[in-house]
Structure formats: C-alpha cells, structure tokens
C-alpha cells in the first residue's frame, strides 16, 4: 500500500453489496474498528450530505445522520415520502437531479427495488443506498461484517449459522454473499417454506462455499462462531402453524451451554421472541453491540466515499 494511494471507494456509488470487492469490504471494516477506538476524523467537514428517505426508516436514518454529524458534515433532506414532491407526481429521476445539484452525496431509502441504482445513474454525486424496497441494504451488511470482525478478530474461515426466515430476509442474503469472499462454512436453520432462495444457493455453489441445512438450532450451536438469528414473520403463516414453526427457531440461554466460548449471537433487531431475554445476560449476546456498530460502519463508509486519502488507513 503506497502512502498516497487513492482509496478504491472514493466517489463510488454504494448501491449493492455485490458492487464491493473484498478489498473494499476489508477497508471499511478496518476503518470502522479504528473509528470505534479513537473516534472519527473530520472527514465530512464543509460537506453537505442529503439524507433522502422516500420511505420512513427511523433506525437507518438516525444511524446515518449520526455518522454524518460526527464526521463534521451537515445534512439536508427529508424523513419520509409524505411531504416530498414525489407525492405531487415528480419522478425520482427529476428529484435526484435537483438534490444532486445541492449536495455532495446522497443517502437514500426508497420503497421500490432498483431506486438507488437508478439514482446513482442520474446523480453526479455518490449515492449511498439505505434500502431499496426488498432489494439491497448494503450498510446493514457492512455493520454485520464489522461486528463479526470485531467479535472474532477475523472474517476468514468462520462457521456461521443463519436461523429463521432465510427466504425473505435480505439481510441474510447480503451477508451470506459478502461473507463468500472469506471462505466461510454456512449452516442454514429454517422451515422448508423459508429456505434460502435458489439463486442465493446457486451463487454459493458457484463460489465453492460449503453450506448445509440443519433441522434444529441445538445441532449447530456447538459448531459455529456466529449464530445469526432472524425474525420469522407471523404474517406469513396461519396462527397455529406459526406457533409450531416459530417455537423451533427460538434461542434460549440453556441451549448455549455447548457453544464455543467466543461464539456470538447476532440479530439485525428489532427482535420479537426469537431470542429469549435470558440470552442477553450470557457472554454470547452481541446484538446490542451490533446495533451500536451501525454508526461506526457508516462513518467508515461515508469517509471512504468522500475522501481520496484516509490518513488512519495510510499509517495503520
């Protein structure tokens, strides 16, 4: 790494996790660790960042906006689609044209799939996807990667179990895809109707990633470094079916007795009842730290996109 190396994320749109190389992911994770330890540098000073939430998402918005403020940037934007010109019939293309002439970067969330890709093509400034419908939410994946790196000390050669709704959970899809760069072993614990989609499995096979379906949580607890829990949504089942299914994907503290000492439980939150509160007091609970890590991962991402050179990385 040369001292004046331009970082590969500079001025890049962050639309989909598949746009990011292994090096990109490692840079973000590394910088997030540094920022968490010593605080972020003033990497957005004099910058105006547009935070455009065409659909409300309080968690994601607050996390991004905190990151921008801590980096010294200022914000413009809106927190839901209700009062924007979109409601008056303006196309997203026109809105983004206008916003891109005011701001140095655009963070956006939109209810339609593909909105961020379209915006990135229209805007002259970098576009950061904060969620486009059911499609992508790359900053969530980045915070997951950072959290895994933080609790395991590496991203390489880890065993990870994904539990719950693996069919509709885009968090799980993106994280599985991102982890493929790091030679993982995956275990999937899900009801038949909520299995990983075929295209994700095809992708894993194509990349030579080992994965296995396991019928019960107990069976994987002792094997894995990370247990990634997700919510099984009630709406997808009739009530009795839900009771049967959901109860099999609930983690309780007594199930963790056989776990490796450093095994950590992650969850994108909010949880409903898939992690019993008694797990919170075990050494394995890591989901609250994971939520907190969102700000550090977003600080790292925004710094890298908006600055050609990051001093902390040059000398790290």
């Amino acid at each position: 790494m040369g001292l004046c190396m331009t970082n590969p994320l500079y001025r890049k749109d962050i639309v989909s996790i598949s746009d990011l190389s292994k090096t990109d992911l490692e840079l973000i994770v590394k910088l997030a660790s540094i920022f968490k330890k010593q605080g972020p540098g003033p990497y957005l000073q004099q910058k105006v960042i547009a935070s455009c939430f065409f659909e409300a998402s309080t968690r994601t918005r607050l996390s991004f906006e905190t990151a921008v403020q801590r980096l010294g940037g200022s914000l413009i934007g809106f927190s839901d689609g209700a009062n924007t010109s979109t409601k008056k019939g303006e196309t997203l293309t026109d809105s983004i044209h206008m916003i891109s002439s005011y701001a140095d970067a655009i963070i956006m969330r939109h209810p339609r799939e593909g909105a961020a890709r379209l915006a990135a093509e229209v805007a002259d400034v970098p576009v950061i996807n904060g969620g486009d419908g059911a499609n992508q939410h790359p900053s969530q994946t980045l915070l997951d990667l950072f959290t895994i790196f933080e609790c395991q000390g590496t991203l390489d050669n880890l065993s990870i179990a994904f539990v719950g709704d693996l069919k509709y959970g885009r968090t799980v899809h993106s994280l599985a895809q991102a982890m493929c760069h790091f030679n993982p072993t995956f275990y999937f614990v899900a009801p038949d109707v909520l299995k990983m989609p075929g295209y994700i499995e095809d992708g894993l096979v194509a990349q030579g990633v080992t994965f296995e379906y396991v019928s019960s949580l107990e069976e994987v607890v002792e094997k894995v470094d990370v247990l990634y829990m997700t919510r099984v949504q009630k709406e997808r089942f009739d009530p009795t079916e839900y009771m049967h299914i959901a109860s099999r994907y609930v983690l309780t503290a007594d199930m963790l007795s056989s776990a490796k000492p450093d095994m950590k439980v992650l969850h994108p939150l909010p949880r409903v009842d898939e992690i019993h509160p008694d797990v919170d007091r075990t050494r394995h609970a890591y989901y609250f730290t994971q939520a907190e890590n969102g700000v550090y991962a977003r600080e790292a991402l925004m710094s890298l996109v908006m600055n050609e050179v990051i001093e902390e990385l040059e000398y790290a």
Partner: peptide, 26 residues
C-alpha cells in the same frame, strides 16, 4: 414508474436461461 429503458442481463450458464434486471437485481 421512471422514464428509463429496462435492462436485463442474460445469464446463459443456467437452464432455463435467466434474465437479471439491472435495476431491481432480480
């Protein structure tokens, strides 16, 4: 909902052939 041309990438390696949308990535 936008004034754009649709774009699909052809994935020939799989059977049946699949088309992946440039925008929604499905």
């Amino acid at each position: 909902t936008e004034p754009v041309a649709t774009r699909f990438y052809v994935r020939e390696q799989v059977r049946p052939i699949q088309l992946t949308c440039h925008f929604c990535e499905r």
